[in-house]
């Protein structure tokens, strides 16, 4: 995988490049990256997985949330080199071959999105919550999503969507 950068450096020294190996949505990858490349850029530009959105680029909004080793992180605030040897999940990894993930279905059923920009981050944060706590209360859902901003919905339907997905997941586990 190659990412082409603008050459803005004034010095003529060599560009430090590191080779990293990682897994994304179950697929093993090798990349050569400059250490200053952010994880969000590796995902969007390097892997062309543009489901991960960049909203604020300042660690506030959570639109770029992905899972690293199962835990949600803001991918704009982690260096790509740091995922060497680790496992990443993005929104593209949620759905199966022919069916939506219950979270995706829940957002559809409960109208959990309007513009949809924050939705991938919301879903990944919610996925981590439901992996850890399959029966969250409404309050627990709200706290788990408190690092993700939505400017359209007022959150009400997002919370409903996650609770819908939790119920569906519990049903299918029985």
């Amino acid at each position: 995988m190659t990412i082409v950068y603008d050459d803005t450096s004034e010095d003529t020294g060599s560009v430090p490049i590191r080779r990293i190996k990682f897994t994304i949505n179950g697929k093993k990858k090798i990349a050569e990256v400059e250490p200053r490349l952010l994880l969000s850029h590796l995902i969007r530009r390097g892997l062309e997985l543009t489901g991960t959105h960049m909203g604020c680029d300042t660690t506030n909004c959570g639109a770029c949330t992905v899972l690293v080793d199962g835990k949600p992180v803001k991918s704009c605030t982690m260096l790509a080199v740091q995922v060497d040897g680790h496992e990443i999940s993005t929104v593209e990894g949620l759905a199966g071959q022919s069916e939506l993930h219950p979270l995706q279905e829940g957002f559809k059923q409960e109208h959990g999105l309007q513009c949809g920009f924050c939705t991938p981050g919301m879903m990944m944060a919610a996925k981590a919550l439901l992996d850890e706590n399959p029966s969250p209360t409404e309050d627990e859902v709200r706290w788990a999503l408190s690092g993700n901003l939505c400017r359209c919905t007022g959150y009400q339907n997002i919370v409903k969507s996650v609770l819908w997905a939790a119920e569906k997941l519990r049903g299918s586990a029985e």
């Binding site: 660690t59 959570g62 949330t65 835990k71 949600p72 992180v73 803001k74 605030t77 982690m78 944060a125 706290w143 788990a144 408190s146 690092g147 993700n148």
Partner: peptide, 12 residues
């Protein structure tokens, strides 16, 4: 501890 930043930042 739960008052630090937000839950996603707290993971890192």
């Amino acid at each position: 501890a739960p008052l630090i930043a937000d839950p996603i930042v707290r993971n890192r």
